[in-house]
């Protein structure tokens, strides 16, 4: 069982004019769009540039626009596109390196600004079910450390591509970066650390620049809800200002 699909991929290099190339590929029923891109590379054009690594929505490298929508092609089933032509373009609001590859360096520098750590320290729930954890268990046989977990954000850049503010203000800190600040804020009770984080978000290119289009939350493949984080940060900053004003 296999699917025939036509990929229309935006090609570009700094030294070339942009163009769309069309590739007819055959993929298994279970294939995702990333597999189809890889087939186009393997069998038709070894100069096709695209980013990919984990193929299971964990690394965040493969993000592109599929038929105009930001997606992780590694979890976008080919069969959802119903045999039609699939248009694949690089993310917006990033400099293009070549074909589907964008320069993520400025993005990662913003992510680093809040010292966003990609693991969160404790977990007490599993798909809605409470975990017994170590409490009440024989300490000899219980796990030695609390459960930890990678953060939901895979730093794919999809929210930046979908964000209308980002295209108006290239200095905008971006939904992922602001969501990272919020996550770090949630992880610390240290007053100085919290003040530093809020200060980072409280900027004309920070939370106040957001137009509340909510496109980031809509496009996010990982349920990070960046727009909600931005609103929550505004609230915290206002609360802090209020406290300072009235010396509470």
């Amino acid at each position: 069982m296999s699917l025939q699909v036509t990929l229309k991929i935006l090609r570009s290099r700094p030294h070339q004019e942009q163009r769309y190339d069309t590739f007819d590929v055959t993929v298994p029923d279970a294939a995702n769009v990333l597999d189809a891109i890889e087939q186009a590379w393997a069998h038709h054009d070894r100069d096709l540039m695209f980013r990919h690594a984990c193929h299971h929505a964990s690394c965040g490298t493969c993000a592109v626009r599929i038929n105009g929508r930001e997606k992780l092609p590694c979890i976008a089933p080919v069969k959802d596109y119903d045999g039609g032509e699939i248009k694949i373009e690089p993310l917006r609001n990033f400099p293009i390196v070549g074909d589907l590859v964008v320069d993520v360096a400025p993005f990662f520098q913003n992510q680093e600004a809040s010292d966003f750590i990609i693991t969160r320290p404790t977990e007490n729930e599993l798909d809605g079910k409470a975990i017994a954890h170590t409490q009440g268990l024989d300490p000899e046989s219980a796990p030695t450390v609390p459960f930890n977990r990678f953060e939901n954000c895979v730093e794919c850049g999809i929210c930046l591509s979908a964000c209308p503010t980002m295209s108006a203000d290239y200095k905008f800190f971006g939904p992922a970066g602001l969501a990272a600040i919020k996550r770090q804020l949630d992880k610390t009770t240290d007053a100085n650390e919290r003040e530093k984080l809020l200060h980072l978000a409280d900027d004309e290119h920070g939370v106040w620049r957001c137009h509340s289009a909510w496109e980031c939350t809509e496009a996010c493949p990982q349920s990070v809800f960046p727009a909600e984080s931005i609103m929550a940060l505004r609230k915290e900053i206002n609360a802090q200002r209020f406290k300072k004003f009235f010396r509470l």
């Binding site: 980013r51 990919h52 690594a53 984990c54 193929h55 964990s58 690394c59």
Partner: peptide, 14 residues
């Protein structure tokens, strides 16, 4: 030749 970890390491059981 491609992205970091775009071969065997990427498609890993983790």
């Amino acid at each position: 030749r491609g992205e970091i970890a775009s071969g065997t390491t990427g498609r890993n059981h983790c």
